[in-house]
């Protein structure tokens, strides 16, 4: 099975990596943040040429943000979910633009919605929100109800 071969290839190269194959055409990889960039560069060489999505999950209880990179191959359609956790108090990570040009837009959104800084992305300008003064809204501690009651009068 190709998924298992990918798993072994990554585990051999990156010891601190946790790789699971939950089902056909899916590989989930979690690893420390220091080796993520190099792993993604390695995977790109191995055929994962399509960056499908970058997203972020706020694990507020653990005090971490989880950056989730979705890569896929064009040949056999294997989709890999590559995750790493960064410190929630100081959310900074390096940009993926050197590997994938369109990472720019995804990072722009994560910067706006979670407040993560991406070093190397020159375009972390407002994206979907206008004149936003509050904490980044997709963070778990942003209270939508409290915000709308404060912003909009209600009876």
């Amino acid at each position: 099975m190709r998924e298992e071969a990918i798993k072994q290839g990554i585990e051999q190269r990156y010891e601190s990596c946790l790789v699971t194959v939950p089902r056909e055409k899916r590989v989930i990889i979690s690893l420390p943040k220091d080796s993520l960039f190099s792993l993604i560069a390695f995977m790109k060489e191995q055929g994962f040429q399509h960056l499908s999505l970058i997203t972020c999950v706020d694990w507020i209880k653990e005090g971490k943000f989880e950056l989730v990179y979705h890569l896929a191959t064009y040949q056999d359609g294997i989709h890999a979910i590559v995750k790493t956790r960064i410190d929630r108090a100081n959310p900074t990570y390096q940009s993926m633009i050197p590997l994938f040009a369109h990472a720019q837009t995804y990072e722009r959104e994560i910067h706006e919605m979670f407040g993560v800084e991406f070093v190397g992305n020159a375009r972390l300008t407002p994206f979907l929100l206008t004149n936003w003064q509050e904490i980044p809204p997709m963070r778990k501690d942003f209270d939508t109800k409290e915000y709308s009651e404060r912003m909009f009068e209600h009876e």
């Binding site: 407002p126 206008t130 997709m138 939508t144």
Partner: peptide, 9 residues
């Protein structure tokens, strides 16, 4: 952003 309705939130 003109149609941002915050669905994911």
């Amino acid at each position: 952003g003109f149609l941002h309705r915050g669905f994911e939130k």
